[in-house]
Design a binder for these strands. Structure first.
Length: 272
DNA sequence: AGGTCGACCTGGCAGC
DNA sequence: TGCTGCCAGGTCGACC
C-alpha cells in the first residue's frame, strides 16, 4: 500500500518515462475512480496534452499539465498502481488507461477502487492537500519542528504519526517500523516524549523513509513501482506483520495490538 | 480544536 | 464444496 517511499518511487519512474509525451487517448474503465468529475471532463483536459512535471506531496501524485488551467491529482490510496507499459491488454483491475502517441500506456489499476483522480486549478481545492503536514524528508522538517508539534498532542504517538496533517506520507507500515527503530512504545502519548526520545524519533523517521526510498518501497501486498516491479524494503521490515516472530533486537516475541482500529506491531521489551 | 469512529471498496482466507 | 464473516488501510465526514 503506497506510503511516501512507494509514491516517491512511482513518481520517479513516471517522470523518467512520461515527461512531455503527448497523450493520444484516455480510457475510463471504471468511473468510480473519478467520482465528481465527468469522463468528458477528464478526456478534454488530458487528450492531446502532456505532463510537464510530476511530483509527490504526501501520498498524492501531482501531474502538472503542458496546457490548460488544470492539474491532475492522483491518490492511489491502498491498492492503486500506476504502471507504464507497452502492452495493449488491460492489466487486472485496470480502471483508467492513458495511451500516449509514442505507443506507451499508463495503466491505473486499483483492486479496491479507493483511489481518486481529480482535476483542480489550485492544489488547495483539495482539503487533504491544503491541511497536509510537513514533508518528513524536506530540509524544512527539523527536530525542533517535530518536538514542538509533539507537545501539542496528547494522543498515542503511533496514530498521530499516521495523521496526514501531522506529518505527510507516513502510513501503517512505516509508523510501526519507525517507532521500533526509535525504540518508543507506540502507545505513549505524543506529549510525553522527552527531548532525547523526540530526537530518536526524528532520526528514525528520516532513516527508515530514506532507506525505503532507496529500496524502492515495500511490496507487502499489492504495491508495485511504475514499471510493475516489486520494491525490496520488505527484507528490512522488523515488526510490521511479524507478530509471533522473534524480535531482531532481543529475541522476544513481536506483538500485534490495535490502535484507532488499525494494527500496530511492536516489541514490548525494546519499545519503552 | 483535538480526537474517535464508521464508511468507502474488493479479494483472500479462516472457520464451519 | 460453498457459504459467511473478517481483515487489509488512506481518507473523509459526522460527531463528541
Amino acid at each position: 500500500m503506497p506510503e511516501l517511499p512507494e509514491v516517491e518511487t512511482i513518481c520517479r519512474d513516471l517522470n523518467a518515462a512520461l515527461l512531455n509525451q503527448t497523450i493520444e487517448r484516455v480510457e475510463v474503465l471504471d468511473p468510480r475512480v473519478i467520482r465528481l468529475l465527468s469522463q468528458d471532463g477528464l478526456k478534454n483536459a488530458l487528450t492531446a496534452n502532456t505532463f510537464k512535471k510530476i511530483f509527490r506531496r504526501g501520498k498524492a501524485l501531482i501531474f502538472e499539465l503542458g496546457q490548460g488551467p488544470y492539474t491532475l491529482v492522483v491518490q492511489p490510496m491502498m491498492t492503486g498502481q500506476l504502471i507504464v507499459s507497452q502492452q495493449r491488454a488491460y492489466p487486472p483491475a485496470c480502471r483508467i488507461a492513458l495511451i500516449f502517441l509514442n505507443g506507451q500506456r499508463l495503466y491505473y489499476n486499483d483492486q479496491r477502487v479507493f483511489g481518486r483522480w481529480q482535476l483542480v486549478q489550485n492544489l488547495n481545492e483539495i482539503n487533504h492537500v491544503r491541511t497536509m503536514g510537513p514533508e518528513p524528508l524536506a530540509r524544512s522538517f527539523t527536530q525542533r519542528l517535530l518536538s514542538e508539534k509533539l507537545k501539542k498532542h496528547h494522543r498515542p504517538i503511533k496514530p498521530l504519526l499516521m495523521e496526514p496533517s501531522f506529518i505527510a506520507g507516513i502510513g501503517n507500515i512505516y509508523a510501526s517500523e519507525i517507532l521500533f527503530e526509535a525504540q518508543i512504545d507506540p502507545r505513549r502519548p505524543a506529549d510525553s516524549l522527552n527531548a532525547q526520545e523526540a530526537g530518536r524519533l526524528f532520526h528514525s523517521i528520516q532513516s527508515v523513509l530514506r532507506e525505503a526510498v532507496r529500496l524502492r518501497g515495500s511490496s507487502v501486498n499489492t504495491y508495485v513501482d511504475g514499471k510493475g516491479e516489486k520494491g525490496t524494503f520488505m527484507t528490512r521490515i522488523r515488526v510490521y506483520q511479524q507478530d509471533g516472530k522473534p524480535c531482531s533486537q532481543c529475541g522476544g516475541e513481536i506483538q500485534k495490538i490495535v490502535q484507532a482500529q488499525r494494527s500496530t506491531f511492536m516489541c514490548l521489551n525494546c519499545q519503552q
